[in-house]
Design a binder for these strands. Structure first.
Lengths: 251, 251
DNA sequence: CTGTTTATATTGGTATGACCATTTATGCAT
DNA sequence: ATGCATAAATGGTCATACCAATATAAACAG
């Protein structure tokens, strides 16, 4: 029905009880179908409010479809390395395409996201936990990259990068939080962001690509260092526990 | 429960009526949850048989999750161009990583897929519709690229490429079928495949990357030509119909 | 007449019980 | 032990009722 145009994005579909009799099925069966479409992000239900057709422009099937799978990857070491490995290519493409195709609205969005990152990154050092309304730094950073992906005018690329972002976040949210609290890292990240943004603004695709790659390499290295440190910490703790157990066992 | 290891891949989970009381929810609610996990490919139900946990090794969440969404992309022109644009990067990465990391089993799989393509491509010209058991050429071609993706040892890359393959197929299956029936195209495709395979076998990453890119560019060009031709055909047919209508209207 | 508050109706979320179709297990006769 | 018919188990569907959140309509105060 959505495909045939009976329901436009944003429309509210008939109530379950109504649609069920219209389709000649029970409400249970209809609900199971709606659940599936909701999982794909095509429908969204609000209790008491109704069920609405998602705007296809902003449907993010990858993200929504992958979300329930995230726990599977939480534990896996190396999973985030796979993601970052891909992002080096995808972000590079996105930056290059954005440099070639971004219109004024795109550039404005990128600038806004970049500025938001700057102010957050640079003010973080002075007033630590200031406004609770402010988004987490990781979210702002992700938003900047997503604005570039959107400016690439490649919907598949945009959706995949959105999905990967969600996966990465659920995979190593702790390390991501740590990343922005390292000394001098926010300043460096902001510099790299500006370099990418300037290249896109100037329409220099190759330069944007190179800047994106070096940015991702930097982030990857930092994350690797954080992971290694936390692993070292774990081993140390375990060793200490072991030692304590031995001492207690010998009173 | 799957994550905590209570249910191993291949196990049969308790009956709905049993599991529902164990979890303290109604059977309807449990069924909706099972439907979602089934959509993700983690569970598979057989009426009368039971519900089983899918082997996580071969779970292809993207493909299964995106399948219902495919019709949305069928009509959109330019959608396949977005996909191909990405594949140029992803296939290049996959080939390069495969050249660096493929073990003997990987190489054997790639060789098998490549040989299957060769025999199918080259025999097609002599005996058209020979064995009905033989897979469509597009499937064989896709399998070759997937074997490379798997050899990259990057599970995220593998899943994304699998998903994109399914999307591309459902997006322009007609044009894909036409592609392998063009004169001299199968021979050229096979040559390019062999070039990629040889580079991977020899462990030359850069060469594999370059071969993959030029291969994708070739395919993209051919598909563009096919699409353009079919569009021309459509316009011509419409014009003819219009003409006929005018003539019939003036008896 | 207007804006606010309250009451009612609508709607999604859940629970329960029943029945059907298919598969699997059981038991009987050979 | 084997083969077949019957019974049990299991997923698929339907119908009904009730709960919770929301939206709409009615009532009310200004």
């Amino acid at each position: 029905m959505i495909l045939t145009g009976r329901f436009e994005p944003g429309d509210r579909i008939p109530a379950e009880r109504v649609l069920a009799v219209e389709l000649g099925v029970s409400r249970s069966r209809l609900r199971e179908a709606i659940k599936q479409l909701s999982l794909l992000g095509m429908l969204v239900s609000r209790q008491g409010g109704g069920t609405y057709v998602t705007s296809m422009d902003e449907v993010q099937p990858l993200r929504t479809a992958l979300a329930p799978l995230a726990p599977l990857t939480a534990g896996k070491a190396g999973y985030w390395r796979d993601i970052m490995e891909l992002r080096k290519s995808l972000d590079a493409d996105a930056a290059a395409f954005a440099a070639e195709r971004a219109d004024m609205a795109d550039k404005a969005r990128i600038k806004a996201a970049c500025d938001a990152c700057s102010s957050a990154f640079l003010s973080e050092s002075v007033d630590m936990d200031a406004a609770p309304t402010r988004l987490p730094l990781a979210k702002l950073d992700a938003r900047f990259h997503m604005s570039i992906a959107r400016a690439s005018h490649n919907v598949v690329l945009y959706q995949i990068m959105t999905g990967l972002e969600g996966l990465l976040e659920s995979s190593i949210s702790d390390s991501l939080d740590t990343l922005y609290r390292l000394p001098d890292v926010p300043r460096e990240l902001d510099l790299q962001h500006r370099r990418i943004f300037d290249a896109i603004l100037a329409g220099r695709g190759d330069e944007a690509r190179a800047a994106a790659i070096s940015h991702l390499v930097f982030v990857e290295d930092q994350l690797a260092a954080i992971e290694a440190a936390s692993a070292r910490q774990r081993r140390s703790t375990q060793a200490f526990d072991h030692l304590k157990t031995m001492q207690e066992a010998r009173p």
